[in-house]
């Protein structure tokens, strides 16, 4: 919360709303289901403020739609926000200040895909740590997130490219 400056409050809230809306669109992949997160763009734009943004979005989902739940809110926030922060630390500066178009696009794609895969890996680890019976479920979830990681990578690539061209201050 300390990283959340008053000037960035509105932008954080709006990205939180975008995350909230994107998470509601579920994609069925076999037995499991996945959803868009937009966590990489959020991480790159917000930095450390990604934690309160994700917290608020997940709180609203838990209260309004019974997605997730209040008991697992903490672990869900960690699972969603930490990949965003990792992406910000690894790629944030290079994407924001990068002048090479091809390199920035490649990094954006990597950031998007990596954020989803880190999130999926963490989720699988949490499931496995809960009970050994969840091992097969964890494997299915991890595999189900691979196509989503590719989609998220492509969307992040074009998203960042558009923002860098049209509104570099927003980044």
């Amino acid at each position: 919360m300390k990283a959340l400056k008053s000037g960035k409050l509105v932008r954080t809230a709006l990205l939180s709303s975008a995350f909230f809306l994107a998470s509601l669109i579920n994609i069925k992949v076999g037995a499991a289901s996945t959803h868009l997160t937009l966590i990489a763009p959020m991480g790159i734009i917000l930095g450390w403020s990604v934690f309160p943004a994700v917290f608020v979005a997940l709180l609203l989902q838990a209260v309004l739609f019974q997605f997730g739940g209040l008991v697992v809110l903490g672990v869900n926030v960690l699972d969603m926000a930490l990949p965003g922060l990792i992406v910000y630390i690894i790629f944030g500066r290079s994407i924001k200040n990068g002048t090479n178009k091809f390199l920035t696009s490649a990094l954006s794609f990597l950031a998007g895909a990596l954020a989803v895969m880190v999130g999926a890996l963490m989720l699988s680890t949490f499931l496995y740590a809960t009970d050994n019976n969840f091992l097969s479920m964890a494997e299915i979830l991890l595999l189900a997130h691979i196509p989503l990681a590719l989609i998220e990578g492509i969307i992040t690539l074009f998203f960042i490219a558009w923002l860098k061209r049209s509104a570099p201050d927003f980044l």
């Binding site: 409050l9 509105v10 932008r11 809230a13 709006l14 990205l15 709303s17 975008a18 994107a22 937009l38 989609i151 492509i154 969307i155 992040t156 690539l157 074009f158 998203f159 558009w162 923002l163 049209s166 509104a167 927003f170």
Partner: peptide, 27 residues
């Protein structure tokens, strides 16, 4: 194909940018 994802990404980005301006005004 790619054009579909490109359109979706541009749509999200432009929506966010315009929404940001309106949000600032509301705030």
């Amino acid at each position: 194909g790619l054009l579909k994802f490109k359109t979706i990404a541009y749509l999200i980005a432009s929506g966010l940018l315009r929404g940001s301006e309106r949000s600032e005004r509301i705030y």
